[in-house]
Amino acid sequence: MLRTIQLAALAAAAFLVSGCVTAKTVEFKWQNDDRRMVLMPTDIQLMNMTGGGVEVPNAEWTAKAEGLFLTSLRDKLSEINSQVIESDTGLDQPQEQVKLIKLHETVGATIQNHLPGTAFALPTMPESAVWTLGSSTHALKARYGADYALFVHVRDSYTSGDRAAAIFVGALFGVHMQGGTQRGFASLVDLRTGDVVWYNRLLRAKGDMRNAKGARETADALLRGFPG
C-alpha cells in the first residue's frame, strides 16, 4: 500500500518537477494585422508559507505581482504587435461577460482535465480538436471591438463537477507545494467563432512574481508558444 502511494507520488512528482508546461500546438495564424485582443479580468493570487506550514494570503505581494504581471503581459503582447484592450472588471462587468467567463472557466477546467496524452484524454478531442465557447462571444466582440480575447488564471479556480478527473488534477496540484509552486492557465479565444485557438498550462515548482524580472519570467512561461 505504501509502495503504491510512493509509486503514485513519484509519477505525480515527475510530472511536476519536470516543469511541466503543456501547450496546444495547433497551427494558429493571426487573421488580422493589428491583433487586437481584449484582456479578460486576470485572476492572480500569491501567498507566503510560515515555518509551521501555514500559508497566509499576502495582499502586498499579490497587488504587486498583479501589477508586475500585467505590465509584463502587456509588454510581451506589444512585442508581437498585439493591441491590448482592457476589459471591465469586478462588479462592473456586464452579465454576458460574467456568464462567458464562467463558461470559459468550465472549458478551461475541461481542457486541463482532459489534456491529450493523459489518462483522462478524450478520444473525441485529440490534439487537433478545438474547444469552443460558442457564439456567445459575439457580444464580447461587439463590446470591445476586438477579434480575440486572452484569459489568464494564475491560480486553480476551476469547477470540480467532473469529480474523478478533478481529484486527479487536484491531487497533482496538492501533492507538492513546498511554498513556491506556480499553476496557471492562459487561453486565447477567437471571438468570431468562440474557439479556443491557443492555450497553455503552467505547473511548476519555481517562479517568483514579486519582482519585475520574476513577473516577466512567469508571463513568458505562461505565454510560451503564444502565437507571434
Binding site: 510512493q6 501567498m47 496538492g174 507545494m177
Partner: peptide, 11 residues
C-alpha cells in the same frame, strides 16, 4: 518521500 509530508496548501 518529502513530497507526501507537505500538506495540501489550500490556504
Amino acid at each position: 518521500m518529502s513530497l507526501i509530508k507537505s500538506l495540501p496548501p489550500m490556504l
